[in-house]
Amino acid sequence: MASHLSGIRHYYGKSWDEIFIQQHYSNLTDALSIFKNDSLQVKPGTKFLYSSNGYILLGAAIENITQQPYLSYMKQNIWGPIGMHATYGDIADSVMDHKSKFYYLTGEEATPYDLSYSYSTGGLLSTTDDLTKFGLAIIGDDFIDQETKRLMFQNQVTSDMRNVGYGLGWFVEEDINNKRIWFHTGELPSSGSILAIFPDQEIIIALLVNSPIVSYTQGEFFEYMMQLEKLVESY
Score class of each variant (00 low, 15 high):
39 S>F: 08
62 I>T: 07
59 G>M: 04
1 M>Q: 08
200 D>V: 02
177 N>P: 00
11 Y>S: 04
30 D>P: 10
193 S>G: 14
59 G>K: 03
231 L>C: 04
148 T>H: 10
109 E>I: 13
140 G>H: 06
225 M>T: 03
234 S>I: 01
11 Y>V: 10
191 S>C: 11
90 D>Y: 11
136 L>E: 13
162 R>T: 14
93 D>I: 01
165 G>M: 05
103 Y>F: 13
225 M>W: 01
235 Y>D: 09
21 I>R: 03
135 G>L: 08
64 N>W: 00
94 S>Q: 10
9 R>F: 04
75 K>V: 12
8 I>W: 04
17 D>L: 02
127 T>P: 13
167 G>S: 07
47 K>R: 12
182 W>P: 02
227 Q>M: 14
187 E>Y: 00
121 T>W: 00
217 T>F: 09
89 G>H: 02
79 W>R: 10
114 D>M: 12
125 L>I: 08
230 K>N: 14
115 L>S: 14
86 A>H: 15
21 I>Y: 05
176 I>A: 12
148 T>P: 09
186 G>V: 00
99 K>L: 15
77 N>Y: 10
17 D>Y: 00
200 D>Q: 15
217 T>C: 07
41 Q>K: 07
203 I>K: 07
93 D>G: 04
184 H>V: 04
223 E>I: 14
155 N>C: 04
146 Q>M: 09
221 F>K: 12
181 I>G: 00
179 K>L: 08
149 K>R: 15
132 T>G: 09
198 F>E: 05
41 Q>W: 00
47 K>W: 01
210 N>P: 01
143 F>L: 07
56 I>P: 00
18 E>D: 15
86 A>E: 15
117 Y>D: 11
158 T>Q: 08
231 L>G: 02
119 Y>G: 07
63 E>A: 11
43 K>L: 08
153 F>P: 02
130 D>W: 14
130 D>T: 11
74 M>N: 10
98 H>F: 14
18 E>P: 01
30 D>M: 11
11 Y>R: 03
40 L>V: 06
134 F>I: 09
228 L>Q: 11
218 Q>G: 14
5 L>C: 06
19 I>R: 06
156 Q>K: 06
235 Y>N: 13
128 T>K: 03
133 K>P: 06
183 F>D: 09
113 Y>F: 15
197 I>K: 02
116 S>G: 04
74 M>G: 07
168 L>W: 12
116 S>W: 14
76 Q>M: 12
11 Y>G: 02
45 G>K: 03
5 L>G: 07
64 N>L: 06
193 S>K: 10
218 Q>A: 09
178 N>W: 11
185 T>A: 01
220 E>V: 05
55 Y>Q: 00
63 E>C: 09
99 K>E: 15
131 L>N: 10
211 S>R: 14
113 Y>D: 10
159 S>W: 11
46 T>H: 02
47 K>Q: 13
26 S>Y: 09
147 E>S: 14
214 V>R: 01
87 T>Q: 13
44 P>E: 01
121 T>C: 12
25 Y>S: 02
88 Y>F: 15
24 H>S: 14
90 D>A: 08
10 H>S: 03
232 V>W: 02
111 T>P: 06
82 I>Q: 15
185 T>D: 04
134 F>E: 07
81 P>A: 01
184 H>W: 03
158 T>N: 08
215 S>D: 07
91 I>L: 15
144 I>N: 05
47 K>E: 12
23 Q>V: 07
123 G>K: 03
106 T>A: 06
9 R>G: 09
101 K>E: 15
81 P>H: 05
191 S>L: 13
